[in-house]
């Protein structure tokens, strides 16, 4: 069996196909931002997570530092338990705040970490104690209406 020009064309086709897959994975998809090797897990409890989804981003000072791995309802505390995967390069103090924020007025929700002042750092598997739940638009409007009604009396 000898090589033919046909083999060359088929080879080119297969190489181009796999190159396209690589472009899809790295340039279009988020495979390049996955960094599964050097990460650690943190937990946080929120009374209301609003529209937060798994794979949502975790930011500190606007920089992407991790992703939400899992969201479940803790049936002992009746609060949402959010498991986060954070890049190992970034260490946070024990009294760090975790807030659920919204990018833009109607954008998707993410977790913002605001570091505190304590010396000791959070270790893998630790829980972030200070959390702030998502802002629910309906609550905001009803608060506003109540205060308006009180003012007019």
């Amino acid at each position: 069996m000898k090589r033919t020009t046909l083999d060359l064309w088929v080879g080119l086709f297969v190489v181009a196909g796999f190159a396209a897959l690589t472009v899809l994975a790295l340039k279009v998809g988020n495979l390049s931002t996955y960094n599964t090797s050097d990460t650690y897990q943190l937990q946080a409890y929120f009374s209301n997570i609003g529209g937060l989804k798994s794979q949502a981003s975790i930011k500190s000072s606007g920089v992407l530092i991790g992703r939400v791995a899992q969201i479940s309802l803790d049936s002992d505390r009746y609060e949402a338990k959010v498991t986060m995967i954070v890049d190992k390069r970034y260490q946070f103090p024990k009294d760090t705040f975790a807030n659920i924020l919204t990018s833009g007025l109607l954008g998707e929700q993410y977790i913002g970490l605001i570091p505190g002042g304590e010396e000791a750092f959070l270790k893998a598997g630790d829980e972030i104690k200070h959390t702030q739940s998502a802002v629910v638009l309906e609550d905001l409007i009803s608060k506003f209406l109540y205060s308006k009604a009180e003012d007019s009396q």
Binding site: L21, K27, V28, G29, N30, L31, Q55
Partner: peptide, 19 residues
């Protein structure tokens, strides 16, 4: 354009399922 694309498209969920 590119950053929104990379933030929106998940490798496992979107690309692998499409394949």
């Amino acid at each position: 354009f590119w950053s929104q694309m990379q933030a929106g498209v998940d490798f496992r969920y979107d690309i692998v399922n499409g394949m």
